[in-house]
Simulated scan of single mutants.
Amino acid sequence: MRHLLLSLCSLFAFNAKAQTFKNPESLFDPTPYRFSHTSSVSTTGELVYISGQSGGLGKEHLLSNSFREQTQVALKNIVTVLDSYKIKPENVMKITILIVDHSQEKLKIWNEEINKVWKNKPFPASTLIPVPRLAIDGMLIEVDAVAFKVKKIKHSPLRH
C-alpha cells in the first residue's frame, strides 16, 4: 500500500502544471495578438534568459532592409535558442519586443509572423517598446525572452 501511495504521489508531481498563463476577464483579450497578460512558474525548473535577438542573419549578422524579414530572423533565432534547451515557444513566459519607428503596419507584420511561431496557446506575457534606434545601424527589431524548462526529478528506487 505504501508503494502504491508513493507511486501515485510521484505521478501527480510529474503531472503538475509548472506554468500558468492568465488573462483576467475584466481586461481586453490579448490572445489575437499572441500574448497573455500574465505568466507564472511554480515548480522546480530552469529559467532561460534569451538576450535580445535581432533580425541579423547568421554569424555575419546580415541585415535585410525589410522589417518582415528581420522579424522572421529574430523569431527564428529565438526558436534556435529554445531548441538548444530542448524546449518550445510554449515554454516562453515573457518576451520584450523593441521596434524601430513603430507603426500599425509594423505591428500587423509582427502579429502575422509571431502567429507562425506561437500557433497554439499559451502565449507569453509581452511588452512592445517603440524605439528610435537599436544597437547597430540597420537593426529594425530586437526580441528578448525568458523561458522556463521543467526539471525532471529523478526518483530513487522505492525501498521496502
Rank of each mutant, 00 (worst) to 15 (best):
K108D: 14
S64T: 06
I114H: 12
L57R: 14
I78T: 02
T71L: 10
D29G: 03
V41T: 07
L134A: 00
D29M: 04
L8M: 00
F148P: 09
A16S: 05
S51I: 02
Q70G: 02
I136Q: 13
Q19P: 05
N120L: 07
V41K: 06
F14D: 11
I87R: 00
Q72I: 11
G58D: 08
T80S: 15
N65T: 11
R159Q: 13
D137W: 04
V150D: 10
S64R: 03
E90G: 10
N15I: 12
V41M: 08
L5F: 00
N91G: 00
T96P: 05
K119N: 08
F12P: 00
P122F: 10
K152A: 04
A74S: 09
D101S: 05
V48F: 04
F148V: 05
P124I: 13
P89H: 05
L75A: 06
Y85L: 02
L62N: 07
H155L: 12
F28A: 04
G138R: 02
T31A: 05
K86E: 11
P30W: 00
T43V: 14
K119Y: 09
Q70A: 07
L8I: 00
C9E: 04
T38L: 15
N77K: 14
Y49E: 13
L5K: 00
E112P: 09
A74M: 10
P89I: 03
T71P: 05
E25V: 06
P32M: 00
F28S: 09
G58I: 10
T80H: 14
K154R: 14
P130E: 06
A125F: 15
K108I: 05
V73M: 13
L62A: 08
L82W: 15
S7T: 02
E46Q: 14
I136E: 12
V150F: 06
C9W: 01
H3N: 02
P89R: 02
Y49T: 09
Q53H: 08
K154L: 14
H61S: 05
E60A: 09
K119G: 03
H155N: 07
E69Q: 11
T31F: 07
P30N: 01
L5G: 00
L75M: 10
K76S: 15
P89V: 07
N15L: 14
L134G: 01
K116V: 10
I136N: 10
L107Y: 15
K88I: 13
K22W: 15
L128T: 14
M93L: 11
H37C: 05
H102C: 05
F14A: 14
N120I: 04
L98W: 08
W118R: 09
S10W: 07
N77G: 08
I141V: 15
D101Q: 09
L158I: 06
A145W: 14
L11T: 00
L140Y: 09
V48P: 11
I129H: 06
F123D: 06
K59T: 11
V79L: 08
I141K: 01
I129F: 13
L11Q: 03
V117D: 13
